[in-house]
């Protein structure tokens, strides 16, 4: 949190940094302050009866961390796993969650004015997890409200009782 805030503070008043990544052919971005680390994909331990986008759990230096494949969740691209597959470890509400993406592209700085609202209809993506859209180097970047997504019922990463506590 601190490093990112320090970097952005001298530049502009409402400029924020986002980490952009690739899912299939689409560019997504999340608030960089939620990113703990980026690492290569490694085999997980499967969890029974979990939805397909939860790949399982793995050991992150002693913590048992769930891994979510956003490609499956958002239904974009092909869920292939090779040496180029990337896992972004997120740190949200004291929980660590890894998300599988096709690749990490860049850190982008955006002011509030640059974040545009999504089209009102015609998009299947659940707008409650969307912060907005932005144009970066002539391609559209989808800004995801990752905190909301991680704690949402849709991902089922959190027990109901716990998610109530987190929301409150």
């Amino acid at each position: 949190m601190t490093e990112a805030t320090l970097q952005q503070s001298p530049v502009g008043s409402d400029e924020r940094e986002y980490l952009s990544f690739v899912l299939g052919k689409e560019y997504y971005a999340i608030d960089i302050t939620t990113v703990k680390e980026i690492r290569g994909y490694e085999a997980t331990t499967k969890i029974a009866n979990a939805p397909a986008f939860i790949k399982g759990v793995l050991n992150l230096r002693g913590d048992i961390v769930p891994i979510v494949d956003l490609r499956i969740k958002f239904d974009v691209g092909e869920p292939t796993y090779n040496e180029f597959t990337i896992v972004i470890m997120l740190h949200v509400y004291d929980r660590i969650v890894g998300v599988v993406v096709d690749g990490v592209s860049d850190v982008v700085r955006l002011t509030e004015a640059e974040v545009l609202p999504p089209p009102e209809f015609g998009v299947a993506f659940d707008s409650q997890y969307l912060l907005g859209l932005a144009d970066v180097d002539d391609s559209m970047v989808i800004l995801v409200n990752i905190e909301k997504l991680i704690t949402s019922d849709a991902l089922a990463l959190v027990d109901n009782s716990q998610s109530a506590a987190l929301a409150g």
């Binding site: 969890i47 029974a48 009866n49 050991n59 913590d63 048992i64 929980r95 089922a156």
Partner: peptide
């Protein structure tokens, strides 16, 4: 190790542990 710390309770599972090779069981 607790599964609930970062994930949730899983039916039939009391928790997890890390084996000698670093894998989760």
């Amino acid at each position: 190790k607790s599964l609930e710390k970062h994930y949730r309770k899983v039916a039939g599972v009391a928790g997890a542990t890390i084996m000698g090779d670093g894998k989760v069981a």
